[in-house]
Amino acid sequence: MLEIKNLHATVGGKEILKGINLTVNAGEVHAIMGPNGSGKSTLSYVISGKDGYEVTEGQILYNGIDLTEMEPEIRAAEGVFLAFQYPVEIPGVPNVTFLKEAVNAVRRHRGEDELDAMQFVKMIKAKTEELGIAKDMLKRAVNVGFSGGEKKRNEILQMAVLNPKLAVLDETDSGLDIDALKIVSDGVNQLRSDERAILVITHYQRLLDHIVPDFVHVLAHGKIQRSGGKELAFELEEKGYAEYGVAAE
């Protein structure tokens, strides 16, 4: 589903990704682990197409199509979802309005009928119940005044309603206590399926106790340094990133 070939990318003229190769198939969960500054978040922004993150070499093939020149909303409509490390607050825009706009924009792109208000409410109600999310979160402005846990849950809710094919979770565990972490990872696990690929980006192993990956990759100095099964995560937890030329933090 996702095939990254020799990907180089710069931010503000500085090269951060220096030749990443990665293949993720449908149904798989991959974890990318790495120390601070290794380029983890850059990778997630490059995949989703944020302005200012420039691909200088290589390709990101998504179901055979190159994403690199595509606008972010088209990528999203094609099924690429990024769960943000720091979800953005948008004052004055009710969450429910935002979700409806997003769902219908994506449906339009896919040639599906838009949902009318009634259909949408029905759908969103079902999803919130499924994920155990409080309904008042829909009425509040997007992420404004949300706690860290609420923000992350909101990301998972968006993921559930937008039904992406490829989900990139950027440091989803940051700022969560154990209970919130459990709720969020349960949400992610519910969304695991044979048609969907998930890329989990994290610094720590603890998230991987809850979302068990099929593969683990170590990202440092802008390159994948090593790949392996889930046991690699435990090894990293124990030894740290020192052997990849990164001082212990």
Binding site: A76, I90, G92, F98, A102
Partner: peptide, 28 residues
């Protein structure tokens, strides 16, 4: 705010619509 626009666009909302949403929020 560029961050807000990117967030909305990442969810599939086209730029113009994203601006309209942010502005409507600003005026709420």
């Amino acid at each position: 705010n560029e961050e807000q626009l990117f967030y909305l666009r990442q969810r599939g909302i086209p730029t113009e619509k994203a601006i309209a949403l942010v502005v409507n929020g600003f005026c709420r």
